Simulated assay, not measured.
Amino acid sequence: MTTPVSRPRPLLALNWKLNKTPAEAAAWAADLAAALTPGAAELAVLAPAIDLPALAAGLPPGVAYGGQDVSRHGAGAYTGEISAAMLRNVGATYVIVGHSERREYHSETDAVVAAKARQAQAGGLTPIVCVGERLDVRERGEHVDFTLDQLRASTEGVGENLIVAYEPVWAIGTGRTATADDAEEMAAAIRGALEGLYTARDFRVLYGGSVKPDNIASLCARPNVDGALVGGASLKVTDVIGLNDALK
């Protein structure tokens, strides 16, 4: 079984999705600053781009932030798009690319995801590349091959500075969670694939899909799960504190 050379601190990548105005983001950041105590985890808030200045002004020291999507273009006549340089200019360090919702609702292909990841890296951001299978794929026993094929295509030409989030589509926002064994199986396979593609050996592999304070510790206890991409539980500061405290 593939095991990381050195275990990084768990990363909690908090994906707000389409939630929170700038005023609400500022209030959330102030509440977090008042309640957060140092823990074993690193935190990064992945918010709507319009919220990032409010987060920059209010997040406690050591909490990073980033975007939920990025253009595959650097600049030009692409109305409505946000470039990596724009995100980096307001202090973002991370950006999600290839989330299953982008793939499904916006028809993003693996090639588009790879192009966005390349642009993110060119702009100084670390892309969090999302991969994962639908329920029918898992039920056929094809989840490993499917996800690794998706990973390879979604990282074509992408440099080593990346994070991979495994998010089984059937467990996102459904209340169903992959078991710790399921998450470990896929995280180990993903790490092995990354080690075949790159010379680095210190990749972070996250799990995403109905992550909560009561299951985060068991997930992150597995040797190849380096944290989580958190959806619904990212919206309430009390849940974020619960996630953080569970990893102490």
Rank of each mutant, 00 (worst) to 15 (best):
10 P>V: 03
12 L>C: 10
13 A>E: 07
15 N>V: 02
16 W>D: 07
17 K>P: 05
18 L>V: 14
19 N>M: 07
22 P>L: 01
25 A>R: 01
25 A>L: 00
25 A>G: 12
26 A>V: 00
27 A>V: 13
27 A>K: 15
28 W>L: 13
29 A>E: 12
30 A>C: 03
32 L>I: 06
32 L>C: 00
33 A>S: 12
34 A>K: 11
36 L>N: 01
37 T>G: 13
37 T>W: 11
39 G>I: 11
39 G>Y: 03
39 G>T: 10
40 A>T: 13
40 A>L: 10
40 A>G: 15
41 A>H: 10
42 E>R: 10
44 A>P: 03
45 V>A: 02
46 L>V: 00
46 L>Q: 02
47 A>L: 07
47 A>I: 12
47 A>E: 09
50 I>M: 14
51 D>C: 15
52 L>C: 09
53 P>R: 15
53 P>Y: 14
53 P>F: 14
55 L>K: 06
56 A>K: 15
57 A>G: 06
58 G>W: 06
59 L>C: 08
60 P>E: 08
61 P>E: 12
61 P>N: 09
65 Y>I: 04
66 G>C: 12
70 V>L: 13
72 R>N: 10
73 H>D: 04
75 A>R: 15
77 A>T: 10
78 Y>T: 07
82 I>K: 01
82 I>F: 06
83 S>W: 08
84 A>E: 09
86 M>A: 15
87 L>N: 10
88 R>S: 15
89 N>I: 05
90 V>Y: 07
90 V>H: 05
91 G>Y: 03
91 G>L: 02
92 A>L: 02
92 A>C: 10
93 T>E: 14
95 V>D: 08
95 V>N: 02
95 V>H: 01
96 I>V: 14
97 V>K: 08
98 G>F: 06
100 S>A: 13
100 S>K: 03
102 R>Q: 10
104 E>G: 09
105 Y>N: 09
105 Y>F: 13
106 H>T: 00
107 S>T: 08
108 E>T: 04
109 T>Q: 00
109 T>N: 02
112 V>Q: 05
112 V>M: 09
114 A>C: 11
114 A>H: 06
114 A>G: 11
115 A>P: 04
117 A>M: 08
120 A>H: 00
121 Q>R: 14
122 A>F: 02
123 G>N: 09
124 G>K: 02
124 G>R: 05
124 G>I: 09
125 L>C: 01
126 T>A: 07
126 T>S: 11
127 P>K: 07
127 P>S: 13
127 P>Y: 04
128 I>E: 01
129 V>S: 05
130 C>Q: 06
131 V>R: 07
134 R>M: 11
135 L>V: 08
136 D>W: 13
136 D>C: 04
137 V>N: 00
140 R>V: 13
144 V>T: 12
145 D>H: 05
145 D>T: 14
145 D>I: 04
